[in-house]
Nucleic acid binder design. Structure first.
Lengths: 143, 143
DNA sequence: ACCTTGCGGTTGACGTGTCAACTATGATAT
DNA sequence: ATATCATAGTTGACACGTCAACCGCAAGGT
């Protein structure tokens, strides 16, 4: 069993995340039309693959299941942000950023920066950063 | 703009939450068949209303929109966990926990405790608890 | 050659959330 | 009494995620 105080910690932790993350995502969506997922995908295509990546690599780098990615790409393809092309050398699919995707990404970068700074980084003390770093370490090790 | 390190903090923070929260939710669902939302609703009905609550109060206490709650209750009603009854004295709807709902809740409490302890509390130092508390304060103030 | 295995990806069903539009009803002002 | 307004709740469309079942294709073993 868990004490009332411990349960409070849990609730505070959840609501902090929900609030902050929600604000960042909302700003981004309102100002750029991109969701977190959209941004993550375009970002990785740009950084790791200069605009192209194999679907499976992409899924791995985002820690997403192939199903989740497949669904998401279907939606993004419909909006003209990316397109899919079969690989010639081996089986599998290349995901390619369209020019619309590129400009959406470039558009979004500064917006995302500002939102993260304003809604998240601004709130953090040095100690918080320590905690976040350490907790991330311990949380990852578990998996 | 944001430095590489700052972006790392953001990513670490997101993935810690996703990992930990995901583990808790998964344990709960696998062992009790309840989602976070289900549990939250049944919990509040029990604590604040001895099994009954007006829909709007419930929504407020969970920080959910009425729409979100309405959708969720529709699903829970279908599964026999709660039922809805119009108020006689005023307009509005009473949400009532069924006996199936009650036993699901009692069933779930210890499971939730264990999961939160194992996946979350175990990972925390005193300093982390401080940080969580303070950040929650600052994150709430903003809204 | 044939069969199995595993990888890469898609699909459909369903739970979850948001948003905007809608209905209905109580409260308030004139 | 009537018009207006706010509150309570529902609904439909759609984005997002998970899960399990499925398809197609390479690689290896026999």
């Amino acid at each position: 069993m868990i004490s009332e105080e411990e349960m409070q910690i849990w609730h505070m932790w959840k609501s902090s995340y929900t609030n902050i993350f929600g604000r960042v995502v909302k700003d981004m969506f309102e100002q750029t039309g991109l969701s977190e997922g959209d941004f993550g995908i375009l970002d990785r295509l740009d950084l790791y693959g200069k605009g192209k990546l194999r679907q499976q690599e992409l899924a791995d780098s985002m820690d997403w299941t192939k199903s989740r990615l497949s669904h998401h790409l279907t939606r993004m393809e419909k909006r003209g942000l990316v397109l899919r092309e079969p690989l010639e050398t081996e089986r599998g699919v290349q995901v390619i950023t369209t020019s619309a995707g590129k400009s959406a990404l470039n558009n979004a970068r500064p917006v995302v920066s500002v939102a993260i700074r304003e809604h998240f980084l601004e709130l953090l003390t040095e100690q918080d950063i320590d905690s976040i770093t350490n907790l991330a370490e311990r949380a990852k090790a578990k998996s």
